[in-house]
């Protein structure tokens, strides 16, 4: 059951000015809110075979927006599990059968590996993504440059279907849906 955010805010009416006053010296340089996803329109990516990403049902803001994006990523790539990781290696969201604990365990290592690959392959051109055999599946791990200075990495576990074109389609669709 979704609880009323309005009711929750009313609990905080007195706390907000108190907290503001108690942190006045350190607060201005700190984040006061996470990245706000603006209202979105449905902007499908380039090809007809590529599913469109519709975030309109999620509202203008919410952590669950990532679940919708991940489900869309699974649909678009055929992956069974999709997960998003921030640049500290912490999991933002995960969808699919791979357990959250496994995703939490893999993420910091994947980021480190990607960092090393980036350095190794810098002289040879743009490094696109990491792909490794993972049991019966492949695990692809790609950095996304999303709007709002939001560096995230997307992990996909499934058949080895991700290529450079698909990677670009994913990024374009996300940028289109999340706004610039």
């Amino acid at each position: 059951m979704r609880i009323s955010l309005r009711a929750l805010f009313s609990e905080l009416e007195e706390a907000i000015p108190l907290s503001q006053a108690l942190m006045e010296e350190v607060l201005p340089q700190r984040r006061s809110a996470p990245v706000v996803v603006p209202p979105v329109s449905t902007q499908g990516p380039a090809t007809a075979a590529f599913p469109s990403l519709d975030l309109s049902s999620v509202g203008t803001f919410g952590v669950r927006i990532w679940d919708v994006i991940l489900d869309w990523s699974r649909q678009a790539t055929g992956a069974s599990t999709a997960f998003l990781v921030d640049m500290d290696g912490l999991v933002v969201a995960t969808r699919g059968p791979l357990s959250p604990e496994t995703v939490e365990f893999l993420s910091p290592g994947l980021l480190t590996a990607q960092e090393q690959m980036l350095q190794m392959f810098q002289p040879f051109g743009d490094f696109q993504f990491l792909s490794v055999q993972f049991g019966e599946d492949h695990l692809c791990f790609l950095s996304l440059n999303l709007p709002g200075n939001l560096p995230l990495a997307l992990g996909l576990v499934g058949p080895p279907t991700v290529d450079v074109a698909l990677r670009k389609n994913i990024e374009a669709a996300l940028i289109g849906a999340l706004g610039s």
Partner: peptide, 23 residues
């Protein structure tokens, strides 16, 4: 508890509405 919508609602509320909530 990221798997529970109630927990996420509270997290959203304090992150967006209350100054001083840590990252």
């Amino acid at each position: 508890e990221k798997q529970k919508s109630h927990s996420l609602d509270i997290l959203e509320t304090v992150w967006t509405g209350l100054p001083g909530v840590l990252d």
